[in-house]
């Protein structure tokens, strides 16, 4: 891993003056040595934006709509559909939130348990704000007033076969429970384009066992295709106004909220699909 000083130097070379100004003041809780308690470092955020600029702007040519619906302050949960065999959708959403919010906010990705155990990748992601998907981590971040980025479909969403593209998998209820417990809104997000970025030949269950997940998809193409990404944000679902924290243990309410979020994401996906004239346009 690069040291924070080297990351800062590299980011300085990659970022435009406007972007440097923009990124100057994002919410960050320094735990004492320039890192937050989960390992996020501002230089890594700057470097991430610098490195992904070309991919975001020129390769995937991301169109973003409705980012003003993301709360400017306080805890909130972004709940998005997950697809594409590699978590590029998470990277684009992370970039988009930092670029489109005022003041800029870092979407703290909640990853599956196997991600922090991956050499290099786990460390790299944690410097960018990702945390392992345990209830304790999510609780701590929401207590700190952070914006979370959750993919309620989990691994089944990202590895689903080509013929199931844009069909939402079962939404887990963890995000609903945390939102009710902490009294924060859920912002539905529809991501269009990721489904076609990396079509897979088949999924290997044997490889999946190594990583402790269901299966690992084997892609048809060596690099992701330059599809056009569309990221649509929906109206925040104000669960904090409808439920009190004691209702966070009611399985029926959790299911109901998760279904509502799923329906909202579905509407955004349909809107995005009707807006586009082709996969690459």
């Amino acid at each position: 891993m690069l040291s924070p000083e080297r990351m800062a130097k590299l980011a300085h070379r990659l970022l435009s003056p406007e972007m440097k100004d923009r990124l100057h003041n994002f919410h960050f809780e320094d735990a004492g040595h320039g890192y937050d308690a989960f390992g996020m470092h501002p230089s890594a955020i700057h470097l991430g934006i610098g490195l992904f600029s070309w991919i975001y702007e020129s390769y995937f040519r991301v169109i973003s709509k409705g980012a003003d619906k993301i709360p400017a302050h306080g805890s909130a949960i972004l709940a998005a559909n997950h697809s594409g065999n590699l978590p590029i959708d998470a990277m684009m959403l992370w970039n988009d939130v930092l670029r489109q919010t005022h003041p800029p906010r870092v979407a703290r990705g909640i990853a599956d348990h196997f991600v922090p155990a991956l050499p290099f990748i786990g460390t790299l992601f944690s410097r960018g704000g990702m945390v392992g998907g345990s209830a304790g981590n999510v609780r701590s971040l929401l207590n700190q007033g952070e914006l979370l980025m959750i993919f309620p479909e989990g691994v089944p969403g990202i590895i689903k076969p080509w013929e199931q593209r844009y069909q939402l998998q079962t939404f887990r209820v963890g995000h609903a429970q945390m939102a009710i417990q902490h009294g924060c809104p859920i912002v539905p997000v529809g991501i269009i384009g990721a489904e076609e970025q990396l079509p897979s030949l088949f999924s290997s269950k044997r490889l999946g066992k190594i990583f402790g997940i269901e299966a690992v998809p084997i892609p048809l193409v060596p690099v992701p295709l330059p599809v056009r990404y569309r990221i649509y944000y929906g109206e925040p679902i104000p669960v904090q106004e409808r439920y009190n924290p004691s209702q966070a243990d009611d399985p029926l309410i959790l299911k109901e909220v998760a279904e509502e979020v799923k329906a909202a994401v579905h509407v955004l996906i349909q809107k995005g699909l009707s807006d586009r004239t082709g996969v690459f346009q």
């Binding site: 308690a37 348990h113 922090p116 392992g132 209830a135 304790g136 981590n137 701590s140």
Partner: peptide, 12 residues
């Protein structure tokens, strides 16, 4: 361990 919270509370 990897699937436990990074921030350790008293009931960890």
């Amino acid at each position: 361990q990897r699937d436990l919270p990074a921030l350790i509370s008293e009931d960890h």
